[in-house]
C-alpha cells in the first residue's frame, strides 16, 4: 500500500502566554507513517500533544515546527497553506468547531466545496447541484436542513457541531482526515451517526487519524493501528487490542514502561 502521510522526527513549539513570548516545546520527535486505506487511532493523556499534532498537520499558524518533516502524498506538507492542504486532500474535524456569526452554513459549505473543487481542477457546482448534494449528504447524517440555514455552528449543540464537521468531511472528499475527539460530547445515537459517516468514507483511497479517549467509537470504526502519545512522543504503537488494554489499565503502565 502507498504511504500517504509520513511524519519524521517532528518537533513543534508554541509561544506561551508570558509577556516575553517564550516558546514551549509540545512535540518532541514524532514519527508516524500512514498508508492509504488505513485507520489509525491516537490516544494519550490530556495535554500530551494530540490536538497540537492535528493543528500542525492542518497548518495552524500558532505552531512552529522546529525540526523534522511531514510528507503528504510525497509532497512537503509543511510548505503548504491550510487551504492548499485541504485541496491536497487533508481534512481536520475540529475538537471545538468554531462559531461564525453572520456566515450562513449552506453558503460556507458551498464556498468550501467549490474552493476545493476549483483547486483540484474539478468543475465548480452551481447552486442547484450543490443543494442536491448537500441535502442528500445531510440526510444520511441525520443533519436537519434547518442547521444548513443557520449561521455556522452558532447556537448548535455540541453534537450538532460535530455532525457539521462530519458533513463537511463528507462533502470535501478528503483522502486523509484527522478527527480530533469528534466523538466527545455525543450521545449514543449521535455517536453511531458520526461513526457511520466516517465508515462511509472508508476505502482504499481514504485514510484517517482518529484522536479519541473512548473505546465506543473504536467498536464502530475498527481501526488498524493504535498509537499512544505522551510527553510529545509516540511511546507505544499496537493493533486494535491496545485500546482495550488502555481502557483497563490507563496510561500509567505504558508511561512507566516508556520511562524505564
Amino acid at each position: 500500500m502507498k504511504t500517504i502521510l509520513k511524519i519524521k522526527n517532528l518537533h513543534v513549539s508554541v509561544k506561551d502566554e508570558s509577556p516575553e513570548g517564550h516558546c514551549k516545546a509540545i512535540l518532541n520527535g514524532i514519527n508516524l507513517s500512514i498508508s492509504s486505506g488505513e485507520t489509525h487511532v491516537l490516544m494519550g493523556p490530556n495535554g500530551s500533544g494530540k490536538s497540537t499534532l492535528s493543528y500542525v498537520l492542518s497548518g495552524h499558524p500558532d505552531y512552529k515546527v522546529t525540526a523534522g518533516s511531514v510528507l503528504f502524498k510525497g509532497q512537503n506538507l509543511l510548505s503548504l497553506t491550510p487551504d492548499a492542504r485541504a485541496a491536497a486532500g487533508l481534512f481536520l474535524a475540529f475538537q471545538a468547531p468554531i462559531e461564525l456569526p453572520g456566515v450562513n452554513n449552506a453558503n460556507f459549505l458551498k464556498t468550501a466545496v467549490n474552493s476545493v473543487r476549483k483547486a483540484r481542477g474539478q468543475e465548480e457546482l452551481d447552486s442547484l447541484k450543490f443543494l442536491k448534494l448537500v441535502k442528500e449528504t445531510a440526510k444520511k447524517l441525520s443533519f436537519s436542513s434547518d442547521m444548513l440555514k443557520r449561521n455556522v455552528n452558532v447556537g448548535f449543540s455540541g453534537g450538532e457541531k460535530k455532525r457539521n464537521e462530519v458533513l463537511q468531511m463528507s462533502l470535501l472528499h478528503p483522502s486523509f482526515a484527522i478527527l480530533d475527539e469528534t466523538d466527545s460530547g455525543l450521545d449514543i445515537d449521535a455517536l453511531r451517526v458520526v461513526a457511520e459517516g466516517v465508515k462511509s468514507l472508508k476505502s482504499t483511497e481514504f485514510s484517517s487519524l482518529i484522536i479519541t479517549h473512548h473505546q465506543k467509537l473504536l467498536d464502530y470504526i475498527r481501526p488498524d493501528y493504535i498509537h499512544v502519545l505522551a510527553k510529545g512522543r509516540i511511546i507505544h504503537s499496537g493493533g486494535p487490542e491496545l485500546s482495550k488494554r488502555i481502557e483497563k489499565e490507563g496510561y500509567s503502565r505504558l508511561l512507566g514502561e516508556f520511562d524505564a
Binding site: 497553506t81 485541504a86 456569526p101 453572520g102 468550501a112 466545496v113 463537511q168
Partner: peptide
C-alpha cells in the same frame, strides 16, 4: 484558520469574515 482549513483561500476567507461583520 477554521475557514482556510476547510479549503477556502485567504482572500475569500477574509471576505467571508468581513461580510459577516
Amino acid at each position: 484558520f477554521f475557514l482556510m482549513s476547510k479549503g477556502i483561500p485567504y482572500p475569500q476567507a477574509k471576505q467571508i469574515l468581513t461580510n459577516a461583520f
